[in-house]
Amino acid sequence: MTTDNLGALSDAGVSIWLDDLSRERLNTGNLADLIAHQHVVGVTTNPTIFASALAKGAAYDQQVRELVARGADTDAAVREITTSDVRHACDLFRSLYESTDGVDGRVSIEVDPRLANDTEATIAEALDLAKAVDRPNLLVKIPATVEGLPAITKVLAEGISVNVTLIFSTARYRDVMEAFVAGLEQAKANGHDLRGIHSVASFFVSRVDSEIDKRLEALDTPRAQELRGQAAIANARLAYAAFEETFRGERWEALAADGARPQRPLWASTGVKDPAYSDTRYVDELVVAGTVNTMPEKTLHAVADHGKITGDTVTGRAAQAQEVFDGLSEVGIDLDDVFVVLETEGVDKFEKSWAELLDTVTGQLNQAKD
């Protein structure tokens, strides 16, 4: 398999992160191989990924037996299993973290999704996770719910690096960037070195097309059909324009003078769900320096094999993207409702995956007791 396309993507300034982690990947050397040969410079995780990993194979059996011997309950077992994998991955990426001055070599772990609408509980969980993993290249994932915004600010103010997840709309993204800047200002007041605080904002892509395309199909008009498959990329390009607006001006420059780094946009949910579309479109069409693209391994291999990396495909395209959104509004798509639905479904999906994770671990603990 050629890595030329992935190399070109990396050379264009896009950090390639893998959207997956498991004990098997760590133990078999698969992740190390992706780092060495496929330009992977970071990893993201979420409850769905951990639920899938725990349900497969025997990689966790020994640790489960040890947890049973110590009398660990399900919640404690889940915490130890997930933080162990993330800590191991952080160690694997440590040299990359150091060689990129902390920009890459990052591994994310998400707060319990059941806390998405509880600010104080999210803060406490984020601080606890950072302490449990105890690695400088960790990113704690906090969802961009209304209740998550003040938690983002508080956790950053404590000097902890944050991956803000489940961002769907540009309006919410602006709120996230405000929370980030406020967090750095508080961190500075608290005496933290801003050079050591990093953040990415995970802007979800494919789910936007899935939801809006479904609504366009229901309209069943020629104009609606013309707009299919355009919303997600337009949405991301508008988000990038908002990023450019935020990270300039006196307020940001004051922080940058003290070593602050911009909160990088991260394109998440980049696996293509509609087989009618190119399986590399959410990579090819979102190339711009200073961003991250976190992709499942299937998408990573597709890009390596037949991606079309042609340079910057984002900068200067906000007006064109706005035309798409104007068109969606004109045909009757309620964009505000779309983003509310997507956020609600996103939290619900992660809660269900967390429940599956708890059930799986409970079953493994019980089996190990027999």
Score class of each variant (00 low, 15 high):
Glu343Pro: 13
Ile35Cys: 08
Ile152Lys: 08
Lys308Glu: 10
Lys56His: 15
Leu328Tyr: 02
Arg174Met: 06
Gln63Tyr: 07
Asp258His: 04
Thr360Tyr: 03
Ala319Tyr: 04
Thr82Ser: 04
Trp267Gly: 00
Tyr240Asp: 00
Asp258Phe: 03
Arg114Gln: 09
Ser329Tyr: 07
Leu238Phe: 01
Val86His: 10
Lys154Ala: 15
Val181Pro: 08
Thr313Lys: 07
Lys56Val: 09
Ser353Pro: 05
Asp312Ile: 02
Thr299Tyr: 05
Ser169Val: 01
Ala157His: 02
Gly29Leu: 10
Thr270Leu: 08
Trp354Val: 02
Ile123Met: 11
Val361Ser: 08
Ala72Arg: 13
Trp267Ala: 04
Ser108Glu: 10
Leu31Val: 10
Val176Pro: 00
Leu129Asn: 01
Asp33Leu: 13
Val272Ile: 03
Phe243Gly: 06
Asn5Met: 13
Ala89Glu: 01
Lys56Glu: 14
Ser10Ala: 14
Ala368Asp: 05
Asp33His: 13
Lys352Glu: 13
Ile212Pro: 12
Leu26Gln: 08
Glu178Arg: 14
Leu127Thr: 01
Arg228Tyr: 10
Thr48His: 05
Val283Pro: 03
Val208Leu: 06
Met295Glu: 05
His37Met: 07
Arg106Gln: 01
Val162Ala: 03
Ala319Lys: 14
Pro150Ile: 03
Leu286Cys: 02
Val68Arg: 11
Asp348Ser: 11
Leu342Val: 03
Val86Arg: 08
Ser206Lys: 14
Thr270Lys: 10
Thr119Trp: 11
Val331Cys: 09
Val43Asp: 00
Glu351Val: 15
Ala239Asp: 00
Glu330Ser: 09
Leu18Pro: 12
Glu345Asn: 13
Cys90Leu: 07
Asp370Gln: 15
Gly311Val: 01
Glu178Ala: 10
Lys188Leu: 13
Ala116Asn: 01
Ala8Leu: 12
Glu147Gln: 14
Gly307Gln: 12
Ser108Met: 04
Phe350Gln: 02
Lys131Pro: 02
Pro136Ile: 14
Ala260Phe: 05
Thr122Tyr: 08
Arg281Lys: 14
Pro262Asp: 04
Val176Ile: 02
Ser99His: 12
Asp33Ser: 15
Asp274Ile: 12
Ala187Pro: 12
Leu67Pro: 01
Arg87Gln: 15
Asp85Glu: 07
Thr28Arg: 13
Asp284Trp: 04
Trp17Phe: 02
Val340Asp: 14
Arg174Gly: 00
Pro113Ala: 00
Ile309Ser: 03
Tyr60Val: 07
Glu244Leu: 12
His88Thr: 11
Ile233Ala: 06
Pro143Leu: 13
Ala157Ile: 00
Val107Arg: 09
Leu184Glu: 01
Glu98Cys: 08
Arg79Pro: 10
Ser15Ile: 12
Ile333Gln: 05
Leu96Trp: 09
Arg261Thr: 06
Val78Arg: 05
Leu194Glu: 04
Ile109Thr: 05
Asn163Met: 04
Tyr277Asp: 11
Asp91Asn: 12
Leu184Thr: 04
Ser99Arg: 15
Gln230Trp: 07
Trp252Thr: 00
Lys214Asn: 04
Leu129Pro: 02
Gly102Asp: 11
